[in-house]
Amino acid sequence: MSTLYREKHSNALLAEPLAEESTPSTVITPSLIGFSNTLIVIPAYNEEKNIGRVLEGIRRCAPEIPVLVVNDGSRDATPRISREHGAKVISLPFNSGYGVALQTGFIFAVKNGYTTVVQMDADGQHDPRYIVDMLQEIQNENLDVVIGSRFLENNRYKTTFFKRAGMFIFGNLASLFCGQRVSDPTSGFQALKGKAIQFVAGEYYPPDYPDADFIIMLHRCGFKTREIPVTMHPSPDNKSMHTGHKTIYYVFKMFLSIIVTLLRQKPKG
């Protein structure tokens, strides 16, 4: 179903220039009915070059779903461009990090009664064509969390050796403790439903780099998670959250977080 759907709409590539006249909001809506209480959350920090394209892509693929951009203290035109593209914009007073911005979106979703949340990145890595796939999967299979994995079907996503090594180690650790395969623990392309949204908005969510530790935490709390294959584009600016000395901290933090997650009493989901 998903593959067929993707082939059908293969022309709706995000990377394509989006001419105004060629953007009918009719491109995709196989079954967005039933997702009225859905919100797309995008944390953004200095993404003026990409955020417009990302929002255009979402408008074409999932026009009915409202989009919330959490501006994480950007110093550029990110909030203005987001508003111009019809997104709700929450601006944090200063740069607080990816996890904090993301969690802000989930707190907003809980406060406003959204029952399903799709989170994606602002740099254009995540292809909005998969939003519908993820929502259908989470609805039809009665799951709590659906994670878009770039390594599940094809393995063409290019990344550095250290990143790949990290993903391999932490992915295998998460797979071991979750009892199911976790191929892409760093994926920020996820759909969450019901109590999983409240869980992310709560105090147990790791506010710096939600990663393999978060997936293990979800599993320990009894949330049903599943990965689905998605295509991810390389980041246009080649930016990464984990560069330089942050890489060492990331590895240390992830090991420590996984250990304490396993030692900690199960949080109430």
């Binding site: 959490v70 929450i90 944090l92 007073p93 406060k111």
Partner: peptide, 13 residues
């Protein structure tokens, strides 16, 4: 501070 930042952003919106 994190919680205040988040709620300040939402309240401002």
């Amino acid at each position: 501070v994190r919680m205040l930042t988040q709620h300040l952003g939402i309240l401002d919106y």
